[in-house]
Design a protein around this nucleic acid. Structure first.
Lengths: 249, 249
DNA sequence: ACCTGAACACCGTTCAAGT
DNA sequence: ACCTGAACACCGTTCAAGT
């Protein structure tokens, strides 16, 4: 419709064709660079910083413009609109997530190590997870772990569709777990079960079980338990036994 | 501060103290009821319908007022503000989710059946999942399954903290899986891996694996596979063997 | 090619005023 | 106790106009 570069959003999501003409620095004002021209990268950088500090909801076009010292409308020229700005941000961050190296003696241990590392990576970018999720790009979060998982699952003797299922099971479990976790963080005061909290009477006469269910949840520990169980189930019995299970028996 | 009932949101989240004086119907206009007075229930019902049809983002206070044929500000009197309106909506829907009856011969089979039923319930209320999630009430979605899971896990011989972990593992897995699934729905055209899609060469020389990874994902099947594996791992080896595994061997 | 201010069509929310 | 219109302080986005 126009020569507006943001029409790139209708093209295949390819490389940014401009952006080579980066910031032209002319001087310093109170330690901050003064731009003569705004670049797409400037916009993304500033937006990324705002999101990193206060989350995506805090990112308004007007606020971003103020941060950059330009008119709101300039931003539109560079990134099209708010939606594709966030798209670009997600794209960039996901691309920065490195591959994950498996650690451990058995394939099962290495798969667990990949799962834990992936979880760590995702939790390190708290807002990213929600943004990728809201954009329907969840599978993107699978990528850093995918190659390693394929290798390890194959190493464990799984083949074909069954191997693919195992890889995806682990991926979905990790991402899903992180989504649930992230959510708990936001509402740390989970309304104390107004449904009766668990008592010995309602918990199969198992006092320890009742206490555990009524008490707080340790996400890290729960993750370890569940991913080990999952991997055990996927790779076959005995898969985790070498490394010792989560519980003394 | 005032007698405004919406100050209930500062009280403990208890029962709605008004709302007994429901709609007073005076006649019919084109098949629609004509209200003389607006009740909190009217507001919630209309809001629920809007959310059900077009999702929570489509719910605006002004639009809701138009739907109800009142001034925007009347709504504020009844529900306080948009946030607590959505809170109330979530509360109501979650409360309507019934308990889940386990089916199957072995405890493992029954746990799997509970997991599948819970997933079904959540997928039946597509917007609810996202809303509960955004509100940080994820554990609420655990509730319909909780009691049955406790029973079955105990039946399988798990006790104390270990039983609690098993219950929670299944719960987080189900909710997490549904979150990931729901997300895929929203973006059905997952950008075809711009990273090279899997080929026989990159997939450990396993052509079937490559095809499976490149192809589409069947969420229902994947869920079954992963939850069976998880339960197997949690309840001990052999747990699922009676019912037959997902794959012929 | 890049940047601008003005304007549009929305929001949620508050408040003083009605009955 | 319940409802109202006017007003406030925000949004994202478009557009014609500048250089």
């Amino acid at each position: 419709m126009s020569y507006h570069p943001s029409s790139a959003r209708t093209r295949a999501r390819g490389r940014d064709l401009r952006g080579f003409c980066n910031t032209v620095t002319t001087g310093l004002v109170k330690g901050k660079e003064t731009r003569t021209r705004l670049s797409r990268k400037d916009v993304l950088d500033a937006a990324a910083e705002l999101v990193r500090r206060h989350g995506p909801r805090s990112l308004t076009m007007r606020g971003l413009a103020a941060e950059l010292g330009t008119a709101v409308t300039s931003i539109y020229w560079h990134v099209g609109n708010r939606e594709s700005l966030l798209d670009a941000l997600v794209e960039r961050t996901v691309a920065d997530l490195g591959e994950i190296r498996p650690v451990g003696r058995t394939p099962a241990q290495r798969v667990v190590s990949v799962a834990r590392a992936l979880r760590r990576q995702l939790l390190d970018h708290p807002h990213l997870v929600a943004m990728v999720h809201e954009r329907g790009l969840t599978e993107r979060m699978f990528l850093p772990a995918q190659r390693s998982l394929v290798h390890e699952v194959h190493e464990a003797g799984l083949r074909g569709a069954r191997a693919a299922d195992a890889v995806r099971s682990v991926q979905v479990h990790v991402v899903g777990h992180v989504l649930v976790e992230r959510n708990r963080e936001r509402a740390p005061v989970q309304r104390p079960a107004e449904e009766e909290p668990w008592t010995k009477d309602t918990a199969e006469q198992d006092g320890a079980l009742a206490r555990a269910l009524a008490g707080p949840l340790d996400p890290e520990a729960l993750f370890t338990v569940s991913v080990k169980a999952l991997v055990t189930g996927l790779l076959g019995p005995g898969a985790m036994t070498v490394g010792g299970g989560p519980y003394p028996h």
